[in-house]
Write a protein that binds this DNA or RNA. Structure first.
Lengths: 338, 338
DNA sequence: GCTGGCACTCGCCCGGGGTGAGTGCCAGGG
DNA sequence: CCCTGGCACTCACCCCGGGCGAGTGCCAGC
């Protein structure tokens, strides 16, 4: 096991490197942190840390920079989560409070996160499968054309057109609407399939086809929308990535355009607590020089979706984690209120 | 006025510079294009073109590059719109045909445009003010809580929560819903305000407050959503911008994050026909080294929204314009069908 | 008005020496 | 046994100057 001081040296290296973006040497370290030992001693410690793979030197006679493994140790053992200051918390709350609808909440959250962390923010819309149904509405747009509107407890709305096999009377429609709602309102989306399973059978033979169509569209909507939507922002922050960024930034932008990639990224995060994926820990190759900090958020005690930021491995982990956690918390509150 | 040949020289310069990204000299020009004259003559022409401000040289002994004014002349007088090939048109149609709803149409359009032009694509959602109302729905979520759902002829759906000043009976609700729809269904959004103006008066005194709230929310939605939504994509293409791009790309990414800026950008475009804004012609400073090609699209003969691409001033104008025009045309068709 | 010739400019590439931060090792001391 | 100061060494970085070559402007001739 590494001695206490060596860990301290690692912490100092991470701290300085994050700040300066330049390899940090033994002398500079002893000057900026009062480690109580001389540069020579620090050099020995550094040699040991390098031996273990926590730091590396870009070229022979340069300072050290942390490796992915070094950052990992740093976030696991050495760094706490820096809590937001009171003014910051107030600012967050004020900013989010102004939101008028779900889109606005998500949009504001993205901007807020990007601004706080100065990195790229990703926010997933509240998931359907973990939400509950608030209301199902059926609108008759034309004799044989319906619109299905699905409203969740988190305020999300999904709509879908339905072409019916046969015209459908207003009476039957009201009937179906009522029965549908009595079965699924307040229930979780994941339970819906079995709740509506035998609903078609209780209708007139004439209407059964249409009811079946409606139900299958409903189920289809649930499945389709399980691949969630998300919003990203703060891509301009990528330009602060580093000096060598032409080659760095390209794959990241490409990855960010692939919603599927991002969803998988967030999906990998554990349900509760914060997840930090560092460099190569990210499955997607384009993100191998980035770290992803993500956390679930929800209106109740349970997470309904996730949000996070994507930034260079060389990021301020405590600060970023603090911001991500705080934002998630407040978004949860906002959703619970609405 | 410039002689025919000088215009030809300018065209050649633009063509080569767009291809190579490097200042083009007189000798290279005569070799790649059969202008029928010697380099020396071309040099004289170049001097004249430079005198007029159509081209410039980065430093004394380098080739020439077109100025914004040069590009302007090029697109106005020298370049046509390169039509898409038949296979390209088929590919566009196939790709867009698979869309399931409006979000999907817009999403696909963005990806398609970005891919075709290899630039950043911007697509505006069909405008509300120019659309017509297909249906207005009122849902009762709680005794004193309603949801307003607005459906347009282009398939767009907007929803808004309403907290009523007093509980509202199911009867009154149905009544209001019916009257509202009979007044506004099929009408243009811009006409809605005056159509519902005196609606509240015809209700019971008890309900008048609620009706007024509903109406004001409806009008509010119209106003708010007049600032349109839009979708962008292909930002990864920014990395192909140029070698000097660290400083170039930053303001562009920032501008792209400001939806307001983009909307203004598209808004400046003329309603019919294609608009090309070159370099400093763009009001926004961050976009002073980009060109914007935009065009309106619509389900009928009238444009309901705009789409376009943002790229370096050094772009393939004929090709880009061709792609933009073709995509706009097919999106219009798709919307008309749905 | 076009052409070939010619001198000139100047950005780019390349190799070399100086500089300095940072290292590894070692011998000495608490 | 661990820490320390000293010391030689390594290399990336910076700066400089020369050679190269693309490209230019000008001019005299056709």
């Amino acid at each position: 096991m590494l001695s206490e001081r060596r860990l301290e040296v690692l912490r100092a290296i991470v701290h300085d490197y994050v700040g300066t973006e330049e390899p940090v040497g033994s002398k500079a370290l002893t000057e900026r942190h009062h480690l109580g030992v001389s540069p020579a001693t620090v050099r020995n410690d550094m040699a040991a840390l390098e031996e273990e793979g926590f730091i590396a030197q870009p070229h022979t006679s340069a300072g050290r920079i942390p490796t992915d493994k070094g950052y990992r140790l740093f976030v696991d053992k050495l760094a706490g989560v820096k809590p937001m200051t009171a003014p910051e918390r107030r600012a967050i709350q004020n900013f989010l409070d102004g939101a008028v609808d779900l889109d606005d909440v998500v949009g504001r959250t993205v901007r807020l996160l990007a601004q706080l962390t100065r990195q790229v923010a990703v926010v997933q819309y509240p998931s359907l499968t973990r939400s509950t149904v608030r209301h199902v509405e059926l609108l008759s747009l034309a004799p044989a054309r319906l619109m299905l509107v699905l409203i969740t407890d988190t305020g999300r709305v999904e709509q879908r057109m339905i072409d019916c096999p046969a015209p459908f009377g207003e009476m039957s429609l009201a009937d179906l609407r009522a029965r549908l709602n009595s079965r699924v309102a307040g229930r979780r989306f994941s339970d819906v399939p079995q709740l509506v399973q035998d609903l078609a059978e209780s209708f007139d033979k004439d209407d059964r086809g249409t009811v079946a169509t409606v139900l299958s569209t409903l189920l289809e909507t649930l499945v389709e929308e399980t691949e969630e939507r998300l919003m990203i922002g703060g891509t301009a922050n990528l330009t602060r990535f580093g000096h060598d960024f032409p080659l760095m930034i390209r794959p990241v932008l490409e990855a960010l355009e692939e919603q599927v990639v991002l969803l998988k990224l967030l999906g990998e995060a554990t349900d509760s607590g914060m997840t930090v994926k560092i460099g190569h820990e990210n499955a997607h190759e384009g993100l191998s020089s980035t770290s992803v900090v993500s956390v679930g958020y929800g209106s109740g005690s349970e997470a309904v979706a996730k949000l996070g930021v994507v930034g260079p491995t060389r990021m301020d982990y405590p600060g970023t984690m603090g911001a991500v956690r705080a934002v998630a918390r407040y978004v949860g509150q906002i959703l619970a209120e609405s």
